[in-house]
Design a binder for these strands. Structure first.
Length: 365
DNA sequence: AATGCGTGGAT
DNA sequence: TATCCAAGCAT
């Protein structure tokens, strides 16, 4: 594929980056990660898939404990496929991007139903599975099956932008960066090469303060030659986050249980549990009388002092917590009554755990 | 193709 | 404190 020359800086030619140099560096410095196969051994496609889904927009440090728990509880893809979605959502709680958990479960079932419980090695077949996009299909093909696929993630984009001094901003430059990356994938050890690029992006060629003097590709890096490395990749500006506000209703019953309910299957926090709340809308805090329209039951609602703040990908949220109590068991109220001691076993996202902490503390963290 | 979708750590 | 960022996907 031809790459637009205008998007890279010109100048005296540098030696092309050699995959062999990156592989040699990888062999000497490879990181041990829970899902990574020992040198010279074959990776388990289930482990590779599970880790790749968890690692989408999520750091290695965060994923580690979740990966270990999932693997201990569900050692094979068939085990995962056999359980209820809610069990998966509970294990996933706190990891974020909950559509991943729904797709993870759907994918496990599809692998069992469509592929006899074995992950396909073919990139196109992988792409057909729920939750597996262009990046993940390529990553699994490369890492689990040692196929020469081009896995484009943030690391690879950054490394390619710097090596080739691509100054066009992301995301527009993605096709250019992918073509540049594809041209480098070697026929031998493509899986190790792919992981080597991740390690390079994570340890030496990070977003800030690249440690160029340690880089196996330093002599081939146009970005470094041009003094641009740390400035690349250039990114388009992001929109400012608006603030949305709402009211959460902490309702207890005669047994000391608290009312929870399940959110709609899709959308924000889809399928997860929540403390019942009003809609979360832009604008000023709802007037008390208007907020009570959203209450799950009639009660003597009392506002707690302070506010629960949380930031999602695209908006800030400010929740006011009000408390109410029922003198009966609340069997007529829609939702699930849950004892506070059992909250840890619920599919509660982080924002709702903040509400729980706030309400139980009476308005203190 | 732009937008919606979480969270925690680093700076 | 505010912003950026992390092994992206679905629509």
């Amino acid at each position: 594929m031809i790459v637009a020359a205008a998007s890279t800086t010109s100048g005296a030619d540098l030696p092309a980056p050699a995959p062999a140099d990156l592989l040699a560096w990888y062999d000497a410095h490879r990181r041990h990660l829970p899902w990574r196969a020992a040198p010279g051994t074959k990776a388990d496609p289930y482990h590779v898939w599970l880790s790749e889904i968890m690692l989408q927009q999520t750091t290695v440090a965060t994923v580690g404990p979740y990966f270990q728990r999932f693997l201990a509880r569900w050692p094979t893809v068939a085990d995962l496929a056999a359980v209820e979605l809610d069990a998966v959502l509970k294990e996933w709680a706190g990891l974020g991007y909950y559509a991943r958990a729904r797709n993870l479960h759907a994918c496990a079932k599809a692998v069992v139903d469509r592929h006899g419980g074995r992950f396909p090695a073919d990139e196109a077949a992988l792409l057909d599975l729920p939750g597996i996009g262009a990046y993940t299909a390529a990553a699994i093909a490369a890492i689990a099956f040692d196929r020469p696929a081009t896995a484009m993630d943030g690391n690879v984009e950054r490394v390619m932008a710097r090596i080739h001094a691509v100054t066009d901003p992301l995301p527009g430059s993605k096709p250019t960066l992918k073509a540049l990356a594809a041209a480098l994938v070697p026929p031998k050890r493509p899986g190790d090469y792919t992981q080597a690029l991740f390690d390079l992006g994570a340890t030496l060629c990070g977003p800030r303060a690249p440690r160029c003097v340690l880089c196996p590709w330093m002599a081939s890096c146009r970005g470094r030659r041009d003094g641009l490395a740390e400035l690349l990749p250039i990114k388009a500006e992001k929109a400012a986050k608006p603030t949305r506000r709402g009211v959460a209703f902490w309702l207890t019953n005669a047994k000391g249980q608290v009312l929870l309910r399940r959110r709609p299957e899709s959308g924000l926090l889809g399928g997860m549990m929540e403390v019942p709340s009003s809609a979360w809308e832009p604008g000023a805090e709802l007037a008390y009388s208007r907020a009570l329209r959203w209450a799950p039951a009639a009660a003597d609602w009392q506002r707690l002092p302070g506010i629960v703040r949380h930031t999602f990908t695209h908006f800030h949220l400010e929740l006011t917590v009000v408390r109410g109590h029922l003198d009966d068991e609340g069997t007529a109220v829609e939702g699930v009554w849950c004892a506070p001691a059992d909250f840890h076993d619920q599919a509660l996202p982080t924002v709702m755990r903040k509400v729980v902490t706030w309400a139980r503390g009476g308005g203190k963290a």
